[in-house]
Write a protein that binds this DNA or RNA. Structure first.
Length: 849
RNA sequence: GGGCGCGUAGCUCAGUUGGUUAGAGCGCCUGCUUCACACGCAGGAGGUCCGGGGUUCGAGUCCCUGCGCGCCCACCA
């Protein structure tokens, strides 16, 4: 079949993408562990993308790195499982659907829980396939027969089992604590879901009159004056001399006309502001703690929608920010506003909707994390979980050691309903694996907890819930612990940490042996890609334009561990050119007859180079050094194979060898560029239903190493380069045949074909167009008028050599160096010096001649 | 307030345990429509490895410090 001159990925990629899925060749089939045919297992679960989302460049990088590794393992003969799936993504998905409803003028509360859930499922059915289609298109070689969704019945059972079991162990509890409340989402969120942003604000200084001491005030500073409505104390530091006489007194809370105590507490920092702090136990995390220490009453003055409650007196019903203005106005009128200064504060916001968090006390479910974290810390310490790059271990430990209990209940409707029931009659709480009919204590009617679990609770079970847990399945036996996890640092705590804790707790073993943390894909200006900045690159669009392989290669070539990737179209251009290069190499090889003859030195040479390339590829992929793998194969194909080997084959046939090496090279490249390699492989290899992805991956083989041929090729290349360089320098017509002399014996015909100079062996003239190297001298016959450029070049070279010689001599005269440096280094300098001197002599002879 | 990372050619970045002439891609310059490929071929220019100090026979690489930039964590009113 005739191949096009330019590689058109669109003509081939969709077909292979589809076939890889339909043929089911990536299904992980294992033999019983005790059978002769049992192979080592390699398993990896996908970081499940949001079911209603679509792929972005970060996914593509992640999936490419995973796919390279997975394909490599598969080709090495491991029983390989890449388990795909999606996450229901509680808040994110619910928000999307709520927004849709809003556009239709609907509200979830009005339509009711069941109808709303049905609506989300409908949306999931519509959009849920997007990611899967995209992944398939990008060549992800996962096992779709094992695809999972966090809300599947099986996974829901795992969630319930985990929750109940944690409850029974006392690791899950319900209680009234201060939580991060998002007034817009109307739900509690975890610490991790709040982001802190530097925000311009004010520090209001307010006078609190001291009871029984007319005209004396305590001035408190606050960034949130509206919370004073709920103040139940002011605090001063016991060491603070200024307020010593006020110990035990009361102040009158302005606006509310309430007497509150002056307490002594370290919460007040004498160095900060006036050294006096107002205490609002119901609306500040610190104050909440202080309130508990001093048994202060807790007055909730802000409600779940961030409006002032009835307890806020005349301010009731106002939004918290309206209330703030009013409070400040009123204080001003009363002459109780001491001063206002500008102040930037770190304001906690909801990571989803950016609404400022309202700390509220509410009844929520928590996971007691300290005991779980301890085991996870230990696992990393003992390298049962290996985190790569290693510097993330520090971050891991830092977070794990300071972990706080995890608020897992969410006031949402989309998610796993908390398996807890309350009996209104007797107050009993029942947490159960199965839905109870009535109260086990008083047979009263039960009411299930209205809340759902944090999305990350179910994701935290992913490595084993997807394999069938809590049942004892064969999949679990074969694939747990999973071998590797490849993910981004942004979900290290959200997800990786939770999996580690829950995996160890419930499986008794780590969920993964290695975690590779990949970098971030940034835009050409190194900015983070984000929808709000509008600099996101849609993988589907670029792959459509350049081909999936080219984009994969572009990503991989920048994927050095521990670094982010600046994604530029230049890089993809280069990768596309690379794909085209391979395509044309294949085209050319195929256009030549598949004849065999005696193997020549270049055949042995290319095998030797290939062998070295294979060694490096294996090492690089093993170590997650994807950029190195990309560079290695790139260099081998373009420079060694195309520029030298094919050029030599043009001169003297034996295309059988070329075919063999090329097909093996396709195997080497396949994990990185699956489409073009699959397509081309089928042009060389017979067999319906076969796939290059099931071939074995080339390994280093000492037998193929050919030092002599490598040396000979080195010499040939140097001669050819020297001659070409000379021609270019002399400004000669590249096509003009030339004559020359060379000091060593070498295949003259080969040289003539490669550089257009017919060399005869013999004495090389000292002057004229001469090139000298330690290994050979050569000259080209040219009219004397054309060698001025050559002379300037020689002078430059001479200067460089003299500098090198001086350097080497200085070192060799240095006794300390001689005594301390390894003999290897000293010898190499001696050898170099000899070379420099010999060359210098030649050059000077030319110049003086 | 803690922690992590970055600063190497015009641009984007490699550089594994310190070893002697620091690499790649893109861009740039010169010459080639050579019968696989102009998404190509050949040749070339371009770097005081952010500044300063130190360890060492030897530092882009290790240590300290300064400057610039980025990120993460944290309940400082």
């Amino acid at each position: 079949m005739q191949l096009d001159k330019v590689y058109e990925p669109r003509r081939f990629e969709p077909r292979w993408a589809q076939w890889w899925v339909e043929s089911g060749i990536y299904r992980a089939e294992y033999q019983p562990a005790d059978s002769d045919k049992a192979r080592p297992a390699f398993s990896l679960v996908i970081p499940p993308p949001n079911v209603t989302g679509s792929l972005h460049m970060g996914h593509m990088l992640e999936h490419t790195e995973i796919d390279v590794t997975v394909r490599w393992h598969r080709m090495r003969g491991d029983t390989t499982l890449w388990l795909p799936g999606m996450d229901h993504a509680g808040i994110a998905t619910q928000m999307v659907v709520e927004r849709q409803l809003a556009e239709e003028g609907l509200d979830r509360r009005a339509m009711g829980r069941e109808a709303f859930e049905a609506r989300v499922w409908k949306w999931k059915a519509e959009s849920g396939g997007t990611i899967k289609r995209q992944m398939i298109q990008l060549g992800a070689s996962c096992d779709w027969s094992r695809e999972r969704f966090t809300l599947d019945p099986g996974l829901s059972r795992a969630v319930r089992e985990t929750f109940v079991s944690l409850y029974e162990k006392g690791l899950v509890y319900r209680g009234e604590y201060m939580v991060n409340w998002c007034p817009r989402c109307r739900t509690a969120i975890s610490d991790l879901e709040t982001i802190h942003e530097e925000t311009a604000g004010h520090l209001w200084h307010i006078r609190y009159p001291v009871v029984g001491k007319s005209d004396q005030y305590l001035v408190v500073a606050t960034t949130r004056p509206e919370t004073m409505l709920g103040d139940t104390a002011v605090a001063i530091n016991a060491r603070d001399e200024r307020y010593r006489d006020l110990h035990g007194r009361m102040v009158r809370l302005p606006l509310m006309d309430r007497e509150i105590p002056i307490i002594l507490d370290d919460i007040a920092d004498p160095e900060f502001g006036t050294g006096v702090v107002k205490i609002t136990p119901a609306h500040d995390m610190n104050d909440f703690e202080a309130g508990k220490r001093h048994n202060l009453p807790m007055i909730q003055v802000i409600d779940e929608s961030a409006k002032i409650t009835l307890a806020g007196g005349s301010y009731a019903g106002l939004d918290r920010y309206e209330a703030r203005e009013r409070v400040v106005e009123d204080l001003k009128d009363l002459g109780l506003l001491d001063s206002v200064e500008n102040y930037t504060l770190s304001l906690g916001k909801c990571s989803r909707c950016k609404t400022p968090i309202e700390p509220l006390v509410s009844k929520q479910w928590f996971v007691k994390t300290k005991p779980l974290a301890a085991k996870a810390i230990q696992a990393v310490d003992e390298k049962r979980i290996e985190i790569i790059p290693e510097n993330w271990v520090k971050t891991w430990n830092e977070w794990m050691h300071n972990i706080r209990d995890w608020c897992v209940s969410r006031q949402l409707w989309w998610g796993h309903r908390i398996p807890a029931w309350y009996c209104d009659a007797c107050g009993e709480t029942i947490v159960s694996r199965t839905d109870p009919d009535s109260c086990s204590k008083c047979s009263g009617a039960l009411r299930q907890d209205a809340d759902v679990l944090d999305t990350w609770f179910s994701s935290g079970l992913w490595p084993f819930s997807t394999l069938g847990w809590p049942d004892k399945t064969d999949d679990l036996k074969h694939f747990y612990p999973t071998t590797l996890l490849i993910t981004g640092f942004d979900i290290l705590f959200f997800w990786v940490a939770r999996m580690a804790m829950l995996g160890i707790e419930f499986m008794g073993d780590v969920p993964f042996r290695q975690v590779y943390i990949h970098g971030l894909v940034r835009d050409a200006e190194k900015q983070k890609m984000s929808k709000t900045k509008g600099n996101v690159i849609d993988p589907l669009i670029v792959t459509e334009e350049y081909g999936t392989d080219a984009v994969r290669m572009a990503l991989l070539s920048g994927a050095a561990p521990g670094t982010d990737i600046a994604f530029t179209t230049d890089r993809i251009d280069a990768s596309r050119a690379f794909a085209n290069k391979i395509w044309n190499a294949a085209r050319f090889i195929l256009s030549n007859p598949d004849t065999e003859s005696e193997s020549l030195f270049e055949d042995l040479w290319i095998r030797s180079r290939f062998n070295e390339c294979a060694r490096q590829m294996n090492e690089a992929i093993q170590a997650f050094r994807y950029h190195e793998a990309a560079q290695t194969i790139w260099h081998f194909i373009w420079d060694d194979f195309c520029d030298w080997y094919i050029e030599l084959k043009k001169i003297r046939g034996n295309w059988r060898w070329a075919r063999t090496v090329f097909v093996d090279t396709l195997c080497l490249l396949h994990p990185l560029m699956p489409f073009i390699t699959e397509e081309l492989w089928h042009r060389f290899v017979e067999g319906e239903g076969k796939s290059i992805s099931l071939e074995s991956y080339p390994q280093f083989n000492l037998i193929l190493f050919q030092p002599e041929e490598e040396e000979e090729m080195d010499l040939l290349q140097n001669i050819v380069r020297a001659a070409r360089n000379l021609r270019a320098e002399l400004g000669l017509d590249p096509k003009q045949p030339l004559e020359g002399k060379i000091s060593i014996g070498i295949d003259a015909e080969l040289l003539r074909r490669l550089c257009g100079v017919t060399f005869t062996r013999g004495d090389v003239p000292k002057t004229g167009a001469v090139r000298s190297t330690p290994d050979f001298d050569l000259s080209i016959d040219v009219p004397t008028g054309q060698i001025e450029a050559q002379r300037r070049r020689l002078e430059k070279e001479r200067d460089q050599l003299m500098k090198n010689i001086a350097n080497s001599q200085r070192q060799l005269n240095d006794e300390v160096f001689l005594s301390k440096a390894p003999a290897k280094v000293v010898d190499s300098i001696r050898a170099k010096l000899a070379e420099y001197e010999a060359q210098l002599a030649k050059i000077e002879a030319s110049l003086n001649g």
